[in-house]
């Protein structure tokens, strides 16, 4: 894939990820962190996202984490199972793979475009790579996470089509649209224009 020109528009993609919600029970505290460590998982701090291909984990609610990885492959089932077996008394592990759709966004005008429906300050110096937040976008609840190569966007699957249509329509004035896959978000830096 050739590198897109810097003046290209918003690039969008989807990631059919497995999404596991880990919700800590009372007093799980450091035991949960140790348990996660044993499973080889990192639980990021509040408002943080960690991306290490092919996995993403983020925290936008206190004592709750969303763990994402490719939905296909034996690892997906193994991961959910490992959490349920390994940390059952410390946290609830809930499959949200069908509940949340994962959208990917990059391109210089991506954040400028999001300002048409998102009330968060997405200035690249404010919402920096490694940060995650839950908010509303185009009237639907979303979770945004800034990865090195762009933004990851989780939305309820029932409103994913609405959001996709909104993104497509809103991106139109911002130049030639492009496509994107998850690999591009783990690496690579994308210049961001922000008004």
């Amino acid at each position: 894939m050739s590198a897109p020109s810097p003046d290209a528009g918003v690039r969008q993609g989807r990631w059919p990820a497995q999404v596991l919600e880990i919700a800590a029970l009372r007093g799980a505290g450091s035991a949960l962190a140790q348990c996660a460590h044993r499973l080889g998982e990192a639980l990021p701090g509040p408002g943080e996202v960690r991306a290490s291909a092919p996995r993403v984990s983020l925290c936008v609610r206190p004592q709750r984490w969303l763990l994402l990885q490719p939905a296909e492959g034996p690892e997906a089932a193994a991961r959910a199972h490992a959490w349920q077996e390994g940390c059952g008394g410390l946290a609830a592990a809930i499959d949200m793979s069908s509940a949340l759709s994962v959208l990917l966004l990059s391109g210089r005008p991506a954040r400028e475009m999001l300002a048409r429906g998102c009330r968060l300050d997405l200035h690249p110096q404010v919402f920096r790579p490694g940060m995650a937040a839950s908010t509303l976008l185009a009237q639907v609840p979303v979770t945004l996470a800034a990865l090195p190569g762009g933004l990851l966007l989780l939305s309820p699957s029932s409103t994913a089509q609405h959001l996709g249509e909104w993104l497509e329509a809103t991106a139109r004035p911002f130049g030639e649209p492009g496509t994107l896959d998850i690999e591009a978000l783990f690496s690579g830096e994308t210049a961001t224009r922000y008004p």
């Binding site: 919700a23 029970l25 007093g27 609830a92 499959d95 949200m96």
Partner: peptide
């Protein structure tokens, strides 16, 4: 109370 609430409306058809 030690309770966790999760909205799984969209998870299940």
């Amino acid at each position: 109370l030690d309770v966790v609430l999760s909205d799984v409306t969209d998870q299940w058809a």
